[in-house]
Design a protein around this nucleic acid. Structure first.
Lengths: 252, 252
DNA sequence: ATATATTTTAAGGTTAACCATAAAAATTCA
DNA sequence: TGAATTTTTATGGTTAACCTTAAAATATAT
């Protein structure tokens, strides 16, 4: 027995490959970080409750609790039972890093590979998790330092890493737009069903239109563009971001 | 108790996001498939023994056995105890799909993003596992249907999916080259240390040189190119693939 | 201020991909 | 052919990310 040990101890280390897998799949944790970042924009008080995560991921309360506690230990967030989670600076950096990678990939896939805007989310969702800063930066430069992704959402750069609202900044929700005025579509929420719906209506980024009707009872906005009128529900209008357009003849 | 059940059964399904992670990390299995494919090129009789996998991955015999049995159940290989594993057509297709994705990514990273040839392996190693056929095909087209990766190795296309020797086909190992003849470097093994070494010697794909010495005792080849002479060990020469070059004046 | 509802968490389970130890089986070699 | 060596596999363990059930703690609404 002792003998066998002795023999086993010297299995001549040949200079063979010896492949080791590395940082395999932070996927779970990273998805939680992104979710908390995203949900905190919409939620009141910035704190994201476990309940929100339960419905977002369709995980059990137990699972959400475990993940949140784990991220808390890693200093990625602070958690108050019954109150919710708040990302630390570390957590926010991580979230922004992921969102940046996500949007860079989306831009690459549409601009360079000819994907449609409703096809890129899933691919980017996977690729973002294995995108080093080096890769992100090189891709970004290759794309010509774009400011927005195919859905019109800002691609954060290091200087605005901690800006809170990456999605609406400088723009207006269409649901807040005013009758009679002219707007230009600058961003949409990255939601496949919505994107396909907009395709059918020939609505895309940079489209300009006039609001010809805004019914507050039915919560419907009606736009005029390209010789047609289209009515959108409040639910849709809330997912579109616009900038006001000033006509040449319309001074101020 | 029964009561509680009844209440719990109707947690009104809201139309909230409900994000589900999918096909998470076949990484382990896929690495085994690739390893078996690669090792079967070098090994005698095509079969890859568990022992080869043990040294390749630095996993235990038990782990290798489990993985092999699992892949066997999935019809990816046939395994004979004490003999080794042989990929099925399904397994080979899978391996080639991965190698194709790997080499396409390597090409993208060097050609489009300016990576050095010794930097691309690790990135490609991760990206290949989440590359759909659609993505691979679009990338491939974007790159202009390249035939080889930055290391000069063939990028398989569907038509040669089952070709056995993707790495040496049509080419010669430098270690088999003859004194006095002229050759062109067409491929090198994708091994970081080797690539960095070659950088230092200004040796790269498509470099042409003449073999001015070939010492069989010391197993050293000496090349002349760009006004310099360089001696390479047999270990290195075995990892370089060349084609013979015929001078204009040297008929036949 | 309590009763009800909701949120948290303890306890224990599952699967995948790894590990170690050691017994059983097959191969190889003398 | 038997002994030595190698290969395989049974048993049992670990961690991460999920699960269920049910108890404990807190919040809310009357």
């Amino acid at each position: 027995m002792n003998n066998q040990q002795a023999i086993k101890e010297k299995p001549a280390i040949k200079d063979k490959p010896v492949i080791k897998a590395k940082q395999v799949t932070n996927r779970g944790e990273e998805d939680y970080i992104k979710a908390i970042y995203k949900l905190s924009d919409e939620a009141e008080g910035d704190r994201v409750t476990n309940h929100q995560l339960v419905t977002y991921f369709a995980h059990t309360a137990q699972t959400v609790n475990e993940m949140v506690r784990k991220l808390e230990k890693k200093k990625i967030l602070v958690y108050q039972p019954y109150k919710g989670s708040l990302l630390t600076a570390l957590g926010k950096d991580e979230a922004v890093r992921l969102i940046r990678a996500h949007r860079i990939w989306e831009t690459f896939l549409t601009e360079k590979l000819g994907y449609a805007w409703e096809e890129v989310h899933e691919e980017a969702e996977m690729l973002e998790h294995l995108t080093s800063s080096k890769l992100a930066d090189k891709l970004y430069a290759f794309l010509g330092a774009p400011t927005v992704c195919p859905h019109g959402n800002y691609i954060p750069v290091l200087s605005d890493m901690n800006r809170d609202d990456l999605d609406t900044c400088g723009r207006l929700k269409l649901s807040k737009a005013k009758k009679g005025k002219q707007y230009c579509l600058k961003g949409v929420v990255d939601d496949k069903a919505l994107l396909v719906y907009l395709n059918g209506l020939a609505i895309y980024i940079d489209l300009c239109f006039t609001i010809i009707e805004r019914d507050l009872i039915s919560d419907i906005v009606t736009l005029a563009y390209g010789g047609r009128n289209t009515s959108l529900s409040g639910a849709v209008a809330q997912k579109l971001f616009v900038c006001e357009v000033y006509d040449a003849e319309d001074n101020t």
